[in-house]
Amino acid sequence: MPDSLRTNRYESRCARCGHTVAAEAGVLLLSKWGYTVVYHPTHAPEADAQGGTSDASAMRVNQREEPCQVCDVVVPEGLGVLVRSRFDGWQVYHPEHLREPAPPRRGPHTGWHQRRLIALDIETTGNRYGVDRIVGAAVYAADGSARSWLIDPGPGPLMMAPYKKHGITVEHACAHGVPTAHALNEIAVVLARHLITKDPMVVWNAPFVLTTLEAELLRHGLIALSDRVPEGLSPICDPLVLDRHADPFRSGGRALEAVTEWYGIPHCHPGHAAFDAEASLALARVIGSCFPPVGRLSRQALHREQVCWHARYAQDAEARRPTENRDMT
């Protein structure tokens, strides 16, 4: 046995085979999940320089039902993994959600994320303001109620951008969709009724979604959403802006699908408005819970801060662009 490895002082059970290991006859390793484990010398995984291991055999299962620290779904007894936290004692995870690094633990603090939120998402023919048309929309509320619209984009030479994932064709929307003006007015009424309560409206990538919606309302001679609410389009909660601000240096993509996966939020059909709206609302709540400085903001401060955070992000992104690309625009 290498001199750098410690032996067990007391009789214990081997983490690999489960059989008894006599005192001073086993190998004692530090699990990366925060506790020591004992092995028969022939069963011990290779240890790192600090005498630790991340081998799956070193996991400790939960002895009672507890909510998973990532997805908040209850983990049945014996089916989860226990991890020792530096500050909060033992925590339980689903095995598939156990990873390093991981999102911060969800906190019990109160805030806007626990209020009656509503989420909006739209499906469009492309990503150009004032040019592309809305062909679908969905609204999802915190109480589980939802509405969705398939929208006829109207006449004109329209083409669906190939990168759109929602699966709606222009032909299908024209044949089966609700007339544009009628659908847009219904959407605006639902959203204005919520915004008047001064509870946040969740919109992933809000600058694009809300600008497109306003442009379409005005194009059809309807009252803009911002003119239907005394205080305008506020408060808005954009989980994309929140995530960029709260965790700016995390590697990986920032698409809705990638961010929901990071926070352990189920998202079955990315690109579909109904599922995107539901996932966006859940994501806003989780981010508010994981980051107390964000979750404890007042609703008005949440809106104001996001305006500043998004402007700062846009400035930084522009500064990172190659000089020759900036000169060409």
Results as ranks from 00 to 15, higher is better:
Ser4Thr: 11
Thr7Arg: 15
Arg13His: 13
Ala15Asn: 10
Gly18Gln: 11
Gly18Ala: 13
Thr20Ile: 13
Thr20Asp: 11
Thr20Cys: 05
Val21Ile: 10
Ala22Pro: 11
Ala25Arg: 14
Gly26Pro: 12
Val27Lys: 12
Leu28Asp: 10
Leu29Gln: 09
Gly34Asp: 13
Tyr35His: 15
Val38Ala: 12
Pro41Lys: 08
Glu46Asp: 13
Asp48Cys: 04
Gly52Lys: 02
Thr53Cys: 06
Ser54Tyr: 02
Ser54Val: 03
Ser54Cys: 07
Ala58Cys: 14
Ala58Thr: 07
Arg60Thr: 09
Val61Lys: 05
Gln63Lys: 08
Pro67Glu: 06
Gln69Asn: 10
Val73Ser: 09
Val75Tyr: 03
Leu79Tyr: 11
Leu79Lys: 12
Gly80Ser: 06
Val83Arg: 12
Arg84Ile: 05
Arg84His: 13
Arg86Ser: 07
Trp90Tyr: 14
Gln91Lys: 15
Gln91Met: 14
His94Leu: 10
Pro95Lys: 11
Glu100Gly: 05
His109Tyr: 10
Thr110Gly: 03
Thr110Cys: 01
Leu117Arg: 00
Thr124Ser: 11
Thr125Ser: 14
Tyr129Asp: 08
Gly130Cys: 06
Asp132Phe: 03
Ser145Gln: 14
Ala146Leu: 03
Ile151Met: 07
Ile151Lys: 04
Asp152Val: 06
Pro157Asn: 07
Leu158Pro: 08
Met160Ala: 11
Ala161Val: 02
Lys164Phe: 04
His166Gln: 13
Val170Tyr: 04
Ala173Asp: 06
Ala175Val: 05
Ala175Asp: 05
Pro179Gln: 04
Pro179Tyr: 05
His182Asp: 10
Ala183Cys: 11
Ile187Met: 14
Val189Asn: 07
Val189Pro: 01
Val190Gln: 13
Leu191Trp: 09
Leu191Val: 05
Leu195Cys: 00
Ile196Ser: 02
Lys198His: 04
Asp199Leu: 01
Met201Val: 05
Met201Tyr: 05
Met201Ala: 06
Val203His: 03
Val209Gln: 14
Leu210Phe: 03
Ala215Phe: 09
Ala215Trp: 03
Leu218Tyr: 01
Leu218Cys: 06
Leu222Ala: 08
Leu225Gly: 05
Leu225Ala: 06
Asp227Thr: 10
Glu231Thr: 06
Glu231Val: 04
Ser234Gly: 05
Ile236Leu: 01
Asp238Trp: 00
Val241Lys: 02
Leu242Tyr: 00
Leu242Trp: 03
Arg250Gly: 07
Arg250Pro: 09
Ala255Asn: 15
Leu256Gln: 13
Ala258Glu: 15
Val259Ala: 01
Val259Met: 02
Thr260Tyr: 07
Thr260Met: 04
Tyr263Gln: 02
Tyr263Thr: 01
Pro266His: 09
His269Met: 10
Pro270Gly: 04
Phe275Ala: 14
Ala277Ser: 10
Ala277Lys: 04
Glu278Tyr: 00
Leu283Asn: 08
Leu283Glu: 08
Ala284Leu: 02
Arg285Ala: 00
Val286Glu: 01
Cys290His: 01
Phe291Gly: 02
Gly295Val: 07
Leu297Gly: 00
Arg299Ser: 03
His310Gln: 14
Ala311Thr: 12
Arg312His: 08
Gln315Thr: 13
Gln315Ala: 15
Asp316Ile: 03
Asp316Pro: 02
Ala319Pro: 00
Ala319Gly: 06
Pro322Gly: 07
Pro322Thr: 07
Pro322Trp: 12
Thr323Val: 13
Thr323Cys: 04
Arg326Lys: 14
